[in-house]
Design a protein around this nucleic acid. Structure first.
Lengths: 183, 183, 183, 183
DNA sequence: TATGAATGAGTATTCATTCAT
DNA sequence: TATGAATGAATACTCATTCAT
């Protein structure tokens, strides 16, 4: 998995043949197939692991956010999303752009699912302070926006993004979401 | 191009070999290569055509939006984005998810670019009515959000989405963006 | 044929596809096939024409040589061979090295045949002055040597070959052959 | 390599596709590419092997010739050249005539190079007995002649060539070269 | 007579997967 | 359990040739 991730990052999906992966991993192709039934499974594992890494990194902060007032909570959640995308941006990008979502890859679990559940949970708890009634819809709107904002910012505009600009982005994202939630 | 699009939609990218495309198109592979220098070029053409179709469909409405007051303009823009994603949702999805962004496909022009320019232009014209100063950032935030919202809604939740739900989505998207811009 | 020769010289046999030839010739592939039944026939025609050009250039001089005494005759014949290889050395080289001798190309008539006949004829006429009895063999030995010498010199050592060096080569070739013939 | 050589000899270069080679070799195409990076490399290997075989066969005799007096040395060298061309005449011919000298094949090492070096070395050692001063030129003249003579004789006139005729050829070649060197 | 779009068999090469050792 | 040579279906692409216009 380590080798696969490294190749994906450094050489791209094209170069990630099973033989190359085995070579970089320092094992034989045969061994690869002893632990992963197919290349697809291996890629899925890499994706899962990447998602796990992200979750590991942000879980505590996200939990922390649950008890904060809306403004602060949202800001934290946006900040956490940025942090998540910064765990391994290049891998994240390759995973998102170069790997054809075909077969089992089609429905690969993403970080978003957990993020979404937590967010909805938060809205539920703070229902009184908010001006939204369809929590499902509201979660979808907020999580989708935050994810898209941070994804695009980190993966496609990283050159343009000083830490100051990143601060502005977090600010803007927070305003976007809070404005929506509190009306 | 028609055959390619059809295969992409019905069988997915990995079935779209040049021989299969030719077969479905009812021509020989040779003929394919008389009109497209490579498979990549063919795919690019399909993407471009899809984008053209979208632009065709929404251009007038988008132009119309330019002269509307903020609330109405944003609503129209969100509605237009939904419409755009409904032109050929399955193809749109395959294009977005299954085609590896490698080589010339990496920078394939998307509908978003034009959309973004128009949006920024609108913000510039209505600067007085808005509470944003960094138009670049504001455009990024709004366009990214609208695009993500409609993309996910149409392409991943289409089953859940009655026309009523779609109306709610437009409403929500509008509130999100207007709140941000005027909030 | 002109176009074919030009492509062979400038771009090599690899690039000499019938379409490219037609394009350079300013006609359609269809027309090509109105005058030549196959690509092979076209190449044969080019080879034949090249041989004709060579013969044209050297025929008179060769005829002239027939009446000269051995030493002078041989020198002339060597000189003529050099001249022959200089008619269009690059084409000559491509013809010799890049075109696979397959099919009808296998037995393509070369300049050598006529050269050989003339040489043998000369030997026959000057039989008395010579110390060879098998004229067939003698012709073979002389013509083969002269041809190989000039071919290699002109086509592979042309950089090393000043006109002075070429003079030396002619001198050497002459000495080689005369020595053999007169013992 | 064995399969490639066999196909070249029996069916010619244009039948020597990688798939056919693999088939004849009794392995899969994939295996072919485990040992040779490209078809070109495979052909180069076949050529090299053929050259090695030739060298193997004649090296000792050539070494032996070095210490012989001119007349005997030259005769041995001519005889050796004939022997060399008889190692695998058909393959030799296909290699020489059917394989387009393009790419890495352009400069494929031939037996001639070593032969040339040895010959020049001999001339240098026996300089006193000879009437040539430019050893470079003399070597070129002699080696080229011997090579051409034997090549043409063995590869194009093999039907005409009884062993008696071959003896005559060696005799003639020897006389040609010795006459030139001692002339 | 000229055209050139259409053809499709054929090419070299790749790579996920297997299995005897 | 690990190996890596062997596999062969599949791929993108070419090009001599044809034939309806």
């Amino acid at each position: 998995m380590e080798a696969t991730a490294r190749i994906l990052v450094r050489e791209g999906f094209d170069k990630a043949s099973t033989n190359r992966i085995a070579e970089v991993a320092g094992v034989s192709v045969g061994s690869l197939y002893q632990y992963f039934p197919s290349k697809e499974a291996l890629v899925v594992a890499v994706i899962d692991r990447h998602n796990q890494e992200i979750v590991q990194v942000v879980r505590d902060e996200l939990a922390e956010a649950m008890s904060l007032p809306v403004q602060k909570a949202v800001r934290k959640m946006v900040a956490v999303a940025v942090k998540a995308h910064r765990v391994n941006p290049t891998l994240h990008r390759v995973l998102a752009e170069q790997i054809p979502r075909v077969g089992k890859l089609e429905d690969v679990e993403t970080f978003n699912r957990e993020y979404y559940a937590l967010f909805k949970n938060y809205l539920d708890k703070h229902r009184d302070e908010l001006r939204v009634d369809d929590l499902e819809l509201a979660s979808f709107v907020c999580v989708t926006s935050i994810e898209a904002l941070t994804h695009n910012a980190v993966l496609h505009h990283s050159k343009t993004l000083s830490s100051g600009a990143m601060e502005s982005l977090i600010e803007a994202g927070t305003r976007l979401v809070v404005g929506y939630l509190k009306g």
